[in-house]
């Protein structure tokens, strides 16, 4: 990779200051996406601002009907958090399927959310759960936050600090992994809760994570795998590559939606 300056601030305010001062600086938490990109020299940041020393970004807590997850919370911590397992077991289980053990030991929810990789797991879950993303300066609803492939509502230098997730009545997740990369090829997170019945899809969409509104309507009327079984996704909205055509991915979304509902119970 190209060399860069390295900073490790201990407060959000300091981190924001560093990032504001240098538009070509990049924030890093777990680095599970950024570092592979840097190694392939796809990115040439002038500086890397390491958020891992900021204590205020850590921790999982329940505040009434909401789970608040600090941005630095690792996937492994999400998967094993007693609070999350009790409140949103589907989210904990989903976290246990992200990447491999070593990714889960380093990667963070905040990093994944801020990066919005189309084949990352969290964006679909947060869309389905109606989560709110808190940054150093504002709160943004998931629907507004995720804006297509690798695109978010974040301004340059803006840092995700926490994710607020309303506790659902029911939620479930299922995914088909890409056989080579093991990222999600088609993953569906379904939830019924304070935000209504919502379905988030990752991996398959041509423009990143999205909500499957036809499935939401069907599930609102009849919460059962059969309700989504006949809903066909539009292949024109899907991504196609050597691992599967857009038609295949469209089909997988329906299959995974059925399984996600079944998993939700």
């Amino acid at each position: 990779m190209y060399d860069f300056a390295y900073h490790k601030p201990s407060s959000v305010a300091d981190a924001v200051k560093l990032l504001a001062a240098d538009p070509d600086a990049r924030a890093i938490s777990g680095g599970m996406t950024l570092l592979p990109a840097l190694k392939l020299r796809l990115n040439k940041p002038t500086a890397v601002v390491d958020l891992s020393g900021i204590a205020e970004l850590r921790g999982v807590k329940r505040e009434g009907g909401t789970i608040v997850v600090g941005a630095l919370t690792k996937h492994y911590e999400v998967a094993t958090s007693a609070e999350i397992k009790a409140a949103i077991p589907a989210l904990a289980w989903m976290a246990s399927t992200i990447g491999d053990t070593q990714v889960r030991n380093r990667g963070t929810m905040g990093g994944s959310v801020a990066n919005n990789d189309p084949s990352a797991d969290y964006p679909a879950a947060l869309l389905a759960l109606g989560a709110t993303i808190q940054t150093d300066k504002r709160k943004i609803g998931a629907d507004d936050f995720f804006q297509g492939m690798f695109a978010t509502a974040l301004d340059t230098g803006e840092i995700v600090t926490a994710i607020h997730i309303p506790v659902p009545e029911k939620a479930g997740y299922a995914k088909m992994k890409n056989p080579a990369s093991r990222y999600s090829m088609a993953g569906v997170f379904v939830a019924r809760g304070p935000a209504g019945v919502r379905v988030g899809v990752n991996g398959a969409g041509a423009n990143g994570a999205f909500r499957a509104t036809a499935m939401e309507a069907a599930l609102a009327a009849n919460w059962s795998p059969d309700a989504v079984a006949s809903i066909k996704m539009d292949p024109a909205m899907m991504n196609g590559d050597i691992h599967g055509s857009a038609e295949y991915r469209a089909h997988l979304v329906t299959v995974m939606a059925k399984r996600a509902v079944a998993n939700a119970g």
Binding site: P179, A180, S181, R182, I242
Partner: peptide, 16 residues
């Protein structure tokens, strides 16, 4: 070469 890295060339893993 489209399958030019382990991201696209499927190497057998233990669970395959």
């Amino acid at each position: 070469l489209i399958s030019g890295s382990m991201m696209d060339y499927t190497m057998p893993r233990a669970d395959d």
